[in-house]
């Protein structure tokens, strides 16, 4: 086994545009579920709306990259409104059903050949970073930057810096919101919305605001992901939603840094398993073929999710006291 390359690949996985994108989406889930108690199983749909919103605005409507990104965010607000207006007055489970269905409908709409000139169907969309000017906006001169496993060319560095900035602003925003009286009301709604209603707060409006803000974080995740890879319908699948949930619960749903660190731990672990499992299979330690070993990591993710929820429901960074009082 080549321990050197396994270690190198794992460490490189610590800081990639993909991880930053997933951390942003997980932050959105933290707003939804961790703080407002909204069961959103369609976060992949929010990411897709952001990514497609950006790419289509640039490719079809010829907008510059920053305007395209704003369009992607605006589209996610519309998406949140469409889902929220009929369901937020109902019990929480309805939102869960509607979001999981809406995300799938959206993915299938992007996948169908009916809109191929706009959505690119199964091939997805590409080239928007160049034609929209995102690549040209790169302030870094050509060259290699960084050290060891973290060596990047100027393009990847630009994606990383952009992603980091967006993530930092989103994290700061979430922190500022949750320490305020607004955050107190939202957390109260998570605990018991009738009690908050009886105190004269417009619960529906707060839930809608929380849904929109979390949705914007999800869309920003999709946009950051779109800056580094193509926009492809195969990415925004339901299993992505559940990976994000795992990262959220791992870090701690009702925390600010938990979602970010949970995402990093989760995807670094994924990178590690992707590298080590086939290697173990090849050297005969695991009695399975290389391809089987690669899919084994999804089994391990499922087991991991169950173990977290059972034994550490507050996540790694959650308040210890919360565990004593799980409803």
């Amino acid at each position: 086994m080549d321990w050197g390359s396994i270690l190198n690949n794992t460490l490189a996985g610590l800081l990639t545009p993909t991880i930053l994108a997933f951390a942003l989406a997980t932050l959105g889930l933290a707003m939804h579920f961790g703080f407002a108690g909204l069961l959103n199983f369609g976060i992949a749909g929010f990411m897709a709306v952001g990514a497609y919103g950006y790419a289509i605005s640039v490719l079809t409507f010829g907008l510059p990259w920053w305007a395209g990104m704003i369009m992607g965010v605006a589209a996610s607000v519309v998406f949140a409104l469409i889902m929220g207006i009929p369901t937020l007055r109902l019990r929480g489970d309805y939102l869960a059903i509607v979001t999981i269905a809406a995300a799938e409908i959206l993915r299938l709409l992007f996948l169908t050949t009916a809109f191929e000139p706009v959505t690119g169907s199964a091939d997805g969309l590409f080239g928007y970073n160049n034609s929209g000017g995102f690549a040209d906006a790169n302030p870094f001169p050509p060259g290699d930057y960084g050290w060891g496993p973290w060596t990047y060319n100027e393009q990847t560095l630009w994606m990383l810096v952009f992603g980091l900035m967006v993530l930092a602003v989103a994290t700061l925003l979430l922190w500022a919101l949750m320490r305020s009286p607004w955050g107190r009301v939202v957390k109260g709604i998570r605990e018991d919305e009738d009690a908050v209603r009886a105190l004269g707060k417009n619960v529906f409006a707060y839930k809608m605001q929380a849904l929109i803000i979390g949705g914007i974080f999800g869309a920003l995740g999709g946009i950051v992901l779109a800056t580094s890879t193509n926009v492809s319908p195969g990415v925004y699948v339901t299993s992505l939603t559940f990976f994000l949930w795992t990262a959220l619960l791992l870090g701690g749903a009702a925390t600010i840094f938990g979602p970010v660190l949970g995402s990093i731990i989760f995807w670094v672990l994924q990178a590690f398993l992707t590298n080590i499992l086939p290697a173990l299979a090849e050297s005969g330690i695991l009695p399975v073929s290389g391809i089987q070993a690669a899919t084994l990591r999804y089994v391990l993710v499922g087991i991991g999710l169950m173990l977290i929820v059972i034994y550490r429901p507050q996540g790694i960074f959650g308040d210890k006291r919360e565990m004593t009082f799980v409803k």
Binding site: S180, P181, G188, A195, A254
Partner: peptide, 26 residues
Amino acid sequence: LSLLTVLENMKLGAKNQTGEKLLNSL
């Protein structure tokens, strides 16, 4: 409101809080 502290429970009760508006809260 179980996972809010007693004091947070109390403060939540007050009406007309400036900081409960989304933009003001920042």
